[in-house]
């Protein structure tokens, strides 16, 4: 080995070790499980109740300073229309910020499409937001420790630490992350951490007139959300990815992706 290579390798090695030094502090798995035995935030969406008014999207954007005109949003509402011929059509114009006010389905490049009423079998709305996964893929891929899971299970982004590399945006199987056009960092739903940690409700759940969205503590057996998750027939999105989502849906179809 050349002396120059030796010095170079040492520098790389030392930097690497020193970055992960803090990892050596405590990694006892039992301690991890018991980290917060009393509080684990979870979310319940009732797709039967959602009417597609889009007030949740508007409230979320205003509450969390996401520019209304930017085509990014932390939560959105999809419309599903199924036809007698077995077709499933999904649309989501501008995240449903202005709600669904027309029968025309937005087929993007191929334009607008009208499905006659007598052709429709099922049609419903599905609100989407961050699933605050128990094993979040987005957190694992962060190279700098800027995104993480709190003790009560919410995945957050450290805006001072994020370098904007975009790995997490690619890593999320649900596409809930985006690049914040003003902060210039990765951004995502926080379950309105500033509201729920002070005993409040999330902006989207508070704005929903129909109670289609609810947040609750999954570790509290008397919590309405925890009860529903336990007793009702609920589903989660894309369980095959193994990310263990914590947003539960009532009335989920296999067509919903």
């Amino acid at each position: 080995m050349k002396r120059r290579d030796f010095l170079k390798n040492t520098a790389v090695f030392v930097s690497g070790v020193s970055i992960s030094l803090s990892a050596l502090e405590f990694i006892d798995p039992k301690e991890l499980l018991a980290a917060n035995p009393k509080l684990r935030w979870g979310f319940l969406v009732n797709t039967y109740k959602c009417v597609g008014c889009g007030f949740c999207v508007k409230a979320c954007k205003i509450e969390n300073d996401i520019p209304l005109e930017a085509h990014v949003t932390r939560t959105w509402v999809e419309r599903y229309v199924m036809t007698k011929s077995g077709e499933t059509i999904r649309d989501c114009p501008n995240g449903a910020l202005a709600g669904y006010t027309s029968k025309l389905l937005d087929e993007n490049a191929s334009g607008m499409r009208l499905v006659p009423d007598e052709e429709i079998t099922q049609a419903f709305f599905v609100p989407k937001l961050c699933n605050q996964c128990s094993t979040p893929a987005c957190v694992q891929v962060c190279p700098v420790g800027a995104t993480y899971q709190t003790g009560d299970g919410v995945v957050l982004v450290d805006r001072k630490w994020c370098i904007g590399c975009g790995y997490c945006i690619m890593g999320c199987p649900y596409g809930v992350r985006f690049f914040h056009p003003i902060e210039r960092v990765a951004d995502k739903c926080t379950f309105c951490y500033h509201r729920i940690s002070k005993g409040g409700n999330t902006a989207c759940a508070q704005a929903c007139p129909f109670g289609a969205r609810q947040i609750g503590n999954l570790r509290d057996p008397n919590d309405p959300v925890a009860k529903a998750v336990m007793n009702e027939r609920v589903g989660v999105l894309r369980s095959e990815y193994g990310t263990k989502p914590n947003v539960y849906y009532i009335g989920l179809n296999e067509e919903v992706r």
């Binding site: 803090s22 990892a23 502090e25 405590f26 990694i27 798995p29 991890l32 980290a35 917060n36 094993t135 979040p136 957190v139 694992q140 420790g145 800027a146 995104t147 993480y148 899971q149 709190t150 003790g151 957050l156 450290d158 805006r159 001072k160 630490w161 951490y193």
Partner: peptide, 17 residues
């Protein structure tokens, strides 16, 4: 450093919470 959720998911600056 590693906070409540361990190295894989909890490696972060605590003050950010």
């Amino acid at each position: 450093g590693t906070q409540e959720q361990g190295y894989t998911f909890g490696f972060h600056r605590l003050g950010n919470e």
